[in-house]
Simulated assay, not measured.
Amino acid sequence: MEKRLLGVIDATAFHEGLQELTLHRSPAAIPFGGRYRLIDFVLSNMVNSGIQSVAIFPKYQYRSLMDHLGSGRNWDLNRKRDGLFFFPSPRLDHPVTGVGPLDHFAANIDFFKRSEQEYTLITNACTIFNTHFFPVLEWHIASGCDITAIRKGGVSLGMYLLKTSLLRELIETRHETGYLSVRDAATDPNSPLSLCSYPYEGYAAMIDSVDTYFSASMDLFEPEVWNQLFPRERPILTKVKDEPPTRYAREAYVHNTMVANGGLIEGTVENSIIARGVKIGKGAVVRNCIIMQKSKIEENCIVEGAILDKDVKVERGAHIKASGKKPYVVRKGTVQGAWMNS
């Protein structure tokens, strides 16, 4: 299969609802589940499906994304032939209109002309799911469709499969057809192409707002969701960091919580996701929260219903509490004290 399918990840999308988490990073690089980034899911699905050539097309704030992906070694994509390719957008002012921006692809047309894979899978970078793409390819070939969109419950997941030759044609004729993205071609009811939908039955969450991000994160505590997202035969791969296990003080109490490496917990933590290197002091209480990498919650703090971005410091005795169902977001690198209510 690896010689038949080229992977293309569109990381150009800008979601207004994620602005509080994307001031310093691409949406694709948003941390998820304590140790992963959003892009890890689709990239791991491609690798687990035998795809050996993956091109990533980013646009905004992609330094952290490049740092996370590196040479692709953690996904076995640091190869002499094929492997991981990175194509930043040459035009920062050009609007993003949908998955698979054809102008961005056109600026790198030589890559598609040199690709030996007969078919191309184009996806967004912000969908949480776990699947094998080989059945999709078999279904696409058997159906005789020009473009197959992967859908769940009738809703597009922003993933499209088509022949690489057709993709090149769409790129070269974009001014005549008026299509600005592959999504435009896949959703045009007047298109001369045959358009089909592949029904995806497993768990999937498209992350396009803080609310969907928080909801999908809390879904991880459901055993059924966890088993679908992290089966042993299709692991979600990520950047490896050699850190010691998190230390737990004698007085610490941790319940129904995901905890990554390298931290220190001395307080109470419930129903939360704790990333790498987080420190939670004595007497502190953390409930229903997402605490990102290297944040520090000092003694006797109360943090409920919040998302703390990386390197946040909550000063001793401070209270942070969301009012209502919407999580309270503390931006990266800030210091919080006293009472904070959303």
Rank of each mutant, 00 (worst) to 15 (best):
I273G: 03
E138V: 11
W139P: 00
R37A: 08
I274Q: 02
V285T: 07
P101H: 03
M206L: 09
P135R: 01
Q19V: 13
F129I: 05
N45S: 07
G34S: 13
I109D: 05
F230D: 01
Q336V: 15
K113W: 03
G262L: 13
D40E: 02
H94S: 13
L84K: 13
F14V: 11
F221E: 05
L264A: 02
A125C: 09
S217M: 05
D309W: 14
S342R: 11
M340V: 15
A284K: 07
L38E: 02
F111R: 10
D219T: 06
L166R: 08
G100A: 10
N300I: 06
P90D: 13
P95E: 04
G144P: 13
G337K: 15
E201P: 02
L102K: 12
E16M: 15
N190G: 12
S89N: 10
F85D: 02
G153V: 05
K279E: 02
W75I: 12
Y160N: 11
T12Q: 07
R234Q: 01
I307E: 11
G72P: 03
V99Q: 03
Y60M: 04
G17S: 10
G154V: 12
G178R: 03
F214D: 01
E299M: 13
M292D: 14
C126M: 04
N261R: 15
G283F: 08
H175L: 11
S115N: 10
F230T: 10
E138H: 09
P245L: 11
E2D: 06
N108D: 01
G283T: 08
A142F: 01
L38P: 04
V335Q: 07
L121T: 08
I30A: 08
A260N: 14
V210P: 04
Y213C: 12
G50I: 03
E116I: 10
S26A: 03
P95F: 04
Y328F: 13
K326V: 05
M66E: 13
A318D: 13
G144C: 14
S115L: 02
D40C: 15
M46H: 05
P135K: 10
G33Y: 12
A11W: 07
A275W: 10
A205K: 12
L167H: 11
A125T: 06
L65W: 14
R73Q: 15
V99W: 08
S181V: 14
P189D: 02
L65S: 12
V335P: 04
E176W: 06
V278D: 01
N78P: 00
A249C: 12
R151Q: 12
W226F: 10
A204W: 04
V314G: 00
L38F: 06
F32H: 06
I147S: 06
E20K: 15
L195Q: 04
